[in-house]
Amino acid sequence: MTFVNKDIAAGIVLVILAVAYWLGADSIPKSLLEGGVGAEALPKMLGILLLILSAVLVLQTILARRQKAEAAAVEEDDADDDAPAVSNYHKHARALGLLLIGIGYIILVETVGYIIGVAYLLAAVTLFAGGASRRTVILFAVLGAVFFWVLFVEILGIHQPQGFWPKLWHQVTQAQSISPAYSATSATL
């Protein structure tokens, strides 16, 4: 059992969220096109609803805690539940690590393209989530990236980010076609 009950904390955060959301709804501009019920009506209602519900959650939890202060601890963790307890900071750190790997992918894939991005992702996650020998990881990442590329780009025909390669390629070909030396060579060949 943690010092502050997690439901009470969540309830308080939600109350703040509800107020912020309501204020956001209040600042939605008025429009002559909105008809009888305005664009802000449902959002405002939702804000109030969330406020009430989170207040109920807080009160409910406080009451329940008073009723059975000692039994509450048992309720905390179900045996067959995978989700970590709130106080398990080590596990949150692992989750954060995986999240950062994902952010890294988003940055990489836009700059160096899909294949390298996927290879990085596969290698990074494998190493982070248990690891393997260097050769296995490299093999898995490379083969995996090729597999993903074949599946998504070739078979399913989906466009994936290409990174800076096409631009580079374009510049290379541009430079070549301008260069007189090059034109001369290609003309003779």
């Binding site: 294949i115 390669w165 390629w169 070549q176 090059y182 060579t185 290609s186």
Partner: peptide, 19 residues
């Protein structure tokens, strides 16, 4: 030589980006 480089490059580009 340049022609070779260019051909190789374009082959790579074609297979990579399916232009």
């Amino acid at each position: 030589m340049r022609q070779v480089v260019r051909n190789t490059l374009s082959a790579v580009a074609l297979s990579l980006f399916a232009i």
